[in-house]
Write a protein that binds this DNA or RNA. Structure first.
Lengths: 245, 245
DNA sequence: CGCGGAATTGACTAATGTCAACGCAGGTGG
DNA sequence: CCACCTGCGTTGACATTAGTCAATTCCGCG
């Protein structure tokens, strides 16, 4: 529940180390942040965290002051409706821009929570606007991030059997990791089964049963912290709703 | 099916009348296109259509060359997966930007189809980039459009009872029409029940039954072409998953 | 006036959710 | 260092929602 008084991430913020010596240059490169036309973005980046499981980067109704990107670890975006039901909208891997849905708005609608030890880059919005006057590619980079986010959301909005959705979820996660140059035959799953289920519109029980079936077919080897992919083609075939790029 | 050889919209295009005397200034104003910092966008706008029901504005795999906005009428965006199953991702009202998910990409993933007699504004992408050099607010306007699109997609990605989703759908449609200054106690529904159902992850039969129930409770009066809202508060209560702005 | 696609309605089915019991693992404190 | 405790995951039995299939009606259009 969002009311718990866990520490919010923004208070634990390094003033402005910029990207010099960040040590995660590979991810930035894979995500396209290293282009010279975006150097301004790198210079205004602040580092947030590390946050630990359950800590919030921001919460619903908190003022929109910055965009974020995951640097290391994983995070989830969660919407909460008036009845208090939560909906996990996305899991974020390193390099993915967070908070785009609040742009040009006063406050965030959603919460973002760390899953496992997670660090973020923070891009203060006024500074983003400022560097854009010098570097006109900056807003186009955001447009592209938003565009990708739209495509990703469209992927999960289809109506498919539970098994397809689950397989597609795993393959998508794998492909995104591969794209970032991260090991992709093993997927860490720092989120709970409940989170996965919620995201896919399934119950934890169903997720558990699906995992059981995949294990039985020897397509994956899984424990509670992660999952080895043993038969990627089969998984991909199963989740054919993945028509991405 | 996308293979039918209906005429594609882009061939029926007025060279470049710009927005002078367009007659839909009210919609543009409501959607924020009339700001002086965006005058360049208005000047590059071409008019497409009118297209009639079932005609495509563009199809999957067609090259991305322009953004569009509905001018009058309604349109739907449809994704098709490798198995040929279609997913209606959105219904577009006048003023809504279309094609953002293909930005900075080579081709469109989705199809956009007119629902009833529909006109579009076309913003050729190279011209958009060009005016942006003069008017730096242009890309920010796109960011904002994309941001809104993300919020809207997030709305439909929740797991809720069929009745909630349906009520929320109707109320959302009503609110968007109201925002545009269109009559909002009556909702034209130029799409088929199948389209509505597909969008909401329901079958036509279920949509029909839900409509029946709403009629019985005297919350709406509906025929196949549209629907009068008789009890908006009740509908809104039913679809409380709508927490927008 | 009748044809044909779309919508509606009903009977039955299947997928997934709900509820409940159990087990495993990690963490804490004796 | 072990034992218990607690939370998460797994598994099974049953319930419920929405889907499927089929028959019927409605309505626009030739």
């Amino acid at each position: 529940m969002l009311q718990t008084s866990r520490q919010d991430g923004v208070s634990r913020m390094t003033p402005s180390p910029s990207c010099a010596g960040c040590g995660h240059a590979a991810v930035c490169q894979a995500s396209g942040y290293d282009r010279p036309e975006l150097s301004g973005l790198r210079h205004i980046a602040e580092r947030v965290g590390p946050l630990r499981t359950g800590e919030y980067l921001y919460r619903p109704m908190s003022p929109f002051r910055a965009l974020y990107a995951v640097q290391t670890g994983m995070a989830k975006t969660v919407a909460v409706d008036v009845a208090g039901r939560e909906q996990v909208l996305a899991f974020h891997l390193p390099g993915e821009m967070i908070g785009l849905d609040a742009m040009e708005r006063e406050v965030h609608d959603n919460a973002v929570m760390a899953l496992g030890k997670t660090q973020f880059c923070r891009f203060p919005y006024p500074a983003v606007r400022h560097v854009s006057t010098e570097q006109p590619e900056v807003p186009w980079h955001l447009v592209q991030s938003a565009s990708r986010r739209i495509s990703r959301l469209q992927l999960t909005s289809g109506n498919h059997m539970a098994e397809e959705r689950f397989a597609a979820f795993l393959v998508d996660l794998r492909d995104r990791r591969a794209m970032l140059g991260l090991p992709s035959d093993y997927l860490p799953l720092p989120m709970s089964r409940a989170d996965i289920g919620n995201h896919l519109r399934l119950t934890t029980e169903t997720v558990s049963r699906l995992l059981g079936r995949l294990r039985q077919r020897e397509w994956v080897r899984a424990d509670r912290t992660g999952l080895h992919i043993l038969n990627l083609p089969a998984l991909r075939e199963q989740g054919l709703s993945l028509l991405m790029h």
